[in-house]
Each structure stands twice: as structure tokens, then as C-alpha cells.
Nucleic acid binder design. Structure first.
Length: 260
DNA sequence: ATGGCCCGTAGAACGGGA
């Protein structure tokens, strides 16, 4: 099966892109972030007509996450859980479901804004709570995929202009240490399992023609538990969606996972 | 030149994104 993560930056605006993409390329599991829709306005019907079931958790204006499953191939999301039981958080940033025996965690990590913002310690605390919550699940041998907009570029090679970003939010040592901690729980960055084109990124600023200049960062990731690693056969960035008219500023990351 | 763009909520600008 194939699993994707995509920060859509408003599902209302991006729904036509999503439907056209899935019609041409029927991904089995799609994790969405920044849907920016309250649950009453989630386009459940349009997605159902496209063959997808959905688990979602939204709020007005900000955040919002969803897991879509292609019913014909993987059925419906099971054991849906909203949020992190270890963190009281009003922001809708996490939704989990079991699909085809894999615990799929769809995550919209906080941005942090800047190192001197009160949003930065919120981000670090959110990351610590995520690590605390996922650690026991992975230790117990649960096959798990953590897919989402991490808002962290793990290494200098994940940034087009490392000097410009070094030490800034998305690249600061405390954020990168926490990314490393997630790996240390027993997960692997699927993107780095394979040879990749030089300077592959997943986010490009809307300004300054950043996409045309490939001035981007790799901040969207799919980490999987080590027991899934032998089944992962590909990880690619669907850059074409960023090149469309009225795009999201993120491109999807797509991972292929073989049968157990 | 430390801003440029896009989105939601507005029903004009502004906060937020990264």
C-alpha cells in the first residue's frame, strides 16, 4: 500500500487538487494537515464519492488534521484517537487510526514562530509529550507510521540555504534533538532509506518565487517503526502538486509499504 | 531593503504560517 502526508493549507481551497490527485494516483492512506475546517464542514461526501473514508479533527481557522483511507484497498480507519492523551492541547494537531495493521499517526507539529516567541516552548513541550506518548507504543512492537508536517528540517542538507536558517526555528538544535529522539525510539526516516535527488524539499515559501528557485526545506516526513522498515520500498516527494496553479506551499511525501 | 505571498476571518486589515 501507499501512504502519503500532505499539508494542504486549507482543505476547502485544495479539495479540487486533492480529488484530482487521488483520481490519477489512488493513494491508499492520506494524512492531511492544516485542513482549517470545523468538522461540520469537512467534505466527507466528496471524499466518499471518490472512494475514501475519513477520520478528522478540525477547528476554526487554524490547524486541523485528517486521515483518509481508500475503502476498496484498506477499508476504514479503525480505533480513531484524537490528540495525545499525555497532553492537554486545544489545538487540533494529532489524529491516529489503525489501517491495515499499522498504527497511523497524522501530526501537524507546531511551527514555533521564532525562538523568542511563547510558541517556541509550546513546540518543544508538544514534542516532548509526543515522544513520551509514542515511546511505549513502539517499544511494545506496534507497527507505526508517524506522518506529517514536522516543522523541523532534521539536517543542514534538508535546507537549501543552511546558513540562512541555522539556529532559526525549524532548524534549531533543541528541535533537531527532539527529531533525533523520535528516531531513537526505534523509528527510521523513510526518505533517507533511498537514494534521493539532490536538494529535495517538501516546503517552499509562497514569496520570492521560492519554488522556482527551489529555495525550500524538507520539513514533512514519514517515520516508521523499525519493524516496518523491511517492507518500505520507496519514499518520494510529489513535487508536481506544488507546481500547480494555486498550490499548497507544501508538497506531499509518498511512501510505499509492502504486505506483511 | 529583514519584505515580498497565501489563507481565514473578516467585510478592512491582521494574525499566522515557515
Amino acid at each position: 500500500m501507499r501512504l502519503a502526508t500532505w499539508n494542504v493549507n486549507s482543505l476547502k481551497i485544495r479539495l479540487p487538487h486533492l480529488l484530482e490527485w487521488l483520481a490519477a494516483d489512488p493513494i491508499d492512506v492520506v494524512c492531511l494537515q492544516e485542513t482549517k475546517l470545523v468538522d461540520e464542514r469537512f467534505p466527507r461526501e466528496a471524499l466518499a464519492q471518490a472512494g475514501y473514508a475519513a477520520a478528522f479533527s478540525g477547528q476554526p481557522t487554524y490547524n486541523g488534521v485528517a486521515i483518509l483511507t481508500r475503502v476498496a484497498s484498506v477499508g476504514e480507519p479503525a480505533d480513531v484517537l484524537v490528540g495525545n492523551p499525555r497532553l492537554a492541547d486545544e489545538q487540533r494537531r494529532l489524529i491516529s487510526a489503525t489501517v491495515a495493521g499499522i498504527r497511523v499517526v497524522c501530526a501537524y507539529f507546531p511551527n514555533g514562530q521564532s525562538l523568542d516567541s511563547e510558541k517556541y516552548p509550546y513546540k518543544l513541550g508538544w514534542l516532548d509529550a509526543l515522544i513520551d506518548w509514542l515511546g511505549p507504543q513502539i517499544a511494545a512492537g506496534q507497527p507505526l507510521a508517524l506522518a506529517g508536517d514536522y516543522n523541523i528540517a532534521p539536517e543542514a542538507r534538508d535546507v537549501r540555504n543552511p546558513a540562512q536558517w541555522e539556529g532559526q526555528v525549524l532548524c534549531s538544535p533543541p528541535e533537531r534533538e527532539r527529531f533525533a529522539k523520535l528516531l531513537a525510539l526505534g523509528m527510521v526516516d523513510t526518505f533517507r532509506l533511498f537514494d534521493q535527488p539532490e536538494k529535495t524539499f517538501t516546503w517552499w515559501d509562497y514569496r520570492q518565487m521560492a519554488f522556482r528557485r527551489n529555495d525550500g526545506l524538507r520539513i514533512d516526513h514519514v517515520l516508521v517503526s523499525r519493524n516496518l522498515q523491511p517492507r518500505v520500498s520507496a519514499c518520494t516527494v510529489a513535487k508536481a502538486l506544488r507546481a500547480r496553479e494555486q498550490p499548497s506551499d507544501h508538497a506531499p511525501v509518498v511512501v510505499e509499504i509492502g504486505p506483511a
